[in-house]
Design a protein around this nucleic acid. Structure first.
Lengths: 180, 180
DNA sequence: CATAGCTTTCATTATTTATTGAAACTTGAG
DNA sequence: CTCAAGTTTCAATAAATAATGAAAGCTATG
């Protein structure tokens, strides 16, 4: 199967962006390809469509599985493995967030906490600790929020989207009521 | 000036993480260093503290300026340039988000829109377009939301954070209000 | 307008990261 | 057990990215 121009452009774009989302170009392309392809694909089809080596595909698959972004299908009487996205677009985006949090934010929080537990030995360290404290709080807030968003039901999400620029207003309203 | 062990560890960690946030290791280190250092630093001091070349610092500064993360200070009677973070931690995080949106999400949205405008020529393209449509909507929602959050006043943010068990409550609240 | 003191540039070099492809491995069927 | 059809591994190589440092570029001051 060969990609149409439009689909090819999309896959290549995923490659460019992929490197910014935590994996490399090829893996981004693989991910994009699997997303826009209706039927699950074999490793050879992927290698073919992207003009990359079979070995490279194998490594990419391993990586995408470690991100929990793809799953394996089997067809009875066929020994090949067929790969497809693991879930909806929203599911996949959530996975990427979760994994990145695990790989980037969690270790940072841990380092910051360790650092903040020890007493500051001088003014330089005192100032540094203040800054680290701010970073720590920011990261905690962000993660609390993102996990909150992930927990929402599709309907709540819908509702949230439609709220759009209104969240400020709802907050004001809430504050007004609580004061009474 | 030489860094304490603890501060050095933090700076190195910023280096590791930096590469995941859009810049490279050295630039991450520079950013971390400037954040935990109370006084603005000269390019030579930075090169010294991180054991990197003067030229490298110059390039890093240019990059950090393009992200609007640092600003220049001048001391009367001194021709050197002194660098310091441009704003609070929250300001800096916002800048990184904005810049990444500009560099990653906006071009993707534009590609997706172009693609969705053209008619699908066959079933493969039709399916691909459906998927692209979902990605498009997801990205739009995310960007709308993040810009919304950035617009909130610090007090509103505070209020939002304290909501405890979450955004779900805000939604319930909004629904209650709308029904009346 | 010359110079000292600083910054930037960029060709070269070093380092890191990704890719290939052949060999090793796995597994189901006969 | 052996083969065939597949998958994975990994040492070698290629490609991309980052760092250096010498030279060129600026600019405030005398």
């Amino acid at each position: 199967m060969t990609l149409s121009d439009k689909n090819f452009a999309f896959v290549m774009h995923c490659g460019e962006m992929g490197s910014r989302w935590g994996f490399n170009r090829t893996i981004g392309q693989m991910c994009g390809l699997l997303i826009i392809t209706k039927e699950p694909m074999t490793a050879n089809e992927i290698a073919d469509a992207l003009s990359i080596s079979r070995g490279n595909v194998s490594m990419g698959i391993k990586e995408l599985q470690s991100w929990r972004l793809i799953k394996v299908h089997h067809i009875p009487g066929d020994r090949k493995e067929y790969y497809a996205p693991a879930g909806t677009i929203w599911d996949m985006a959530n996975r990427v967030f979760e994994e990145r949090k695990k790989r980037e934010i969690d270790p940072t929080l841990s380092l910051l906490r360790d650092n903040l537990l020890e007493p500051a030995n001088n003014d330089d360290e005192k100032f540094a600790q203040q800054q680290m404290h701010e970073i720590h709080d920011l990261l905690e807030t962000v993660t609390k929020w993102s996990s909150e968003l992930q927990r929402l039901s599709p309907e709540q999400l819908q509702s949230l989207m439609k709220l759009g620029s209104g969240i400020g207003k709802v907050l004001d309203f809430k504050d007004k009521i609580l004061k009474k």
